[in-house]
């Protein structure tokens, strides 16, 4: 479904991604783990069309070359990103935030209404607060809103950037449970970037390890979870 071939990204003269190649197959949950500053967020942002790629990079999504497409066009192809730091719209209500998620689906009123209902079933807290402004939500609720908003575009591929940051362990568990459930019941393909490698590898079919802008390892989630070097570097020892 998603294929990154030799993707190179630089901020000015500093190259932060060195020819990385990643593949996400339909129906998979794939995670990219790595230390802070390894380039994980850059990778997702460049896929989503928020960053320009260097020549020679290629990103294919569902058979279409999206390498040089802008973010607002890529959404229409069926990709959604729940960005790092949530980036919900603080002065819009929960409901309006979700409506913005479905911005391109304005001709499909019935479908949007149905998805809205589903999202509220998934996150009942959001339904309770549907008329509140985004900024009044707690951190966990904002993360739920960011994911729910991404889902509202009815994506084929959902990309989640650090969904666990700053959240209580219970909330993190709940969010990962929902991601897993979406994957299983709807067949939603997920690309997940996480610093919490244990959590991420726990739900992922496959994982990539990113270090200083390069992919240093890739394997199934389970194998990575049991890999000693990975354990030592990213899973807090033992």
């Amino acid at each position: 479904m998603l294929q990154l071939n030799n993707v190179q990204v630089a901020y000015g003269n500093i190259e932060v991604l060195h020819k990385i190649s990643i593949e996400v197959k339909k129906g998979e949950i794939v995670t990219i783990i790595g230390a802070n500053g390894a380039g994980k967020t850059t990778a997702l942002r460049s896929v989503a069309g928020l960053l320009p790629k260097k020549k020679g990079s290629q990103i294919l999504f569902d058979g279409i070359d999206i390498t040089n497409m802008g973010a607002e066009k890529i959404v229409a192809e069926g990709m959604a990103l729940s960005p790092e730091g949530r980036h919900i719209f603080p002065e819009l209500t929960v409901e309006d935030n979700l409506e913005m998620g479905a911005y391109l689906r304005h001709k499909d009123k019935a479908g949007v209404a149905k998805d809205m209902k589903e999202v509220f079933e998934m996150f009942p807290r959001l339904e309770e607060r549907r008329r509140q402004l985004g900024k009044t939500l707690s951190g966990g609720e904002q993360q739920m809103l960011a994911i729910a908003r991404a889902l509202m575009s009815s994506p084929k591929l959902l990309m989640l950037d650090e969904p666990s940051t700053g959240l209580a362990p219970l909330v993190i568990k709940e969010i990962f449970r929902i991601v897993k459930k979406l994957n299983q019941t709807r067949g939603l393909t997920v690309l997940l970037v996480e610093q919490n490698a244990k959590m991420a590898l726990g739900v992922a079919d496959r994982g990539y390890v990113l270090k200083n802008g390069e992919i240093v390892k890739s394997d199934t989630g389970e194998n990575l979870l049991n890999d000693d070097s990975i354990r030592a570097a990213y899973l807090g020892g033992r």
Binding site: L50, E72, V75, A80, P83, F89, Y103, R149, S153
Partner: peptide, 8 residues
């Protein structure tokens, strides 16, 4: 940026 991600 979030607006772009919505397709706006």
């Amino acid at each position: 940026e979030a607006a772009r991600l919505m397709g706006i």
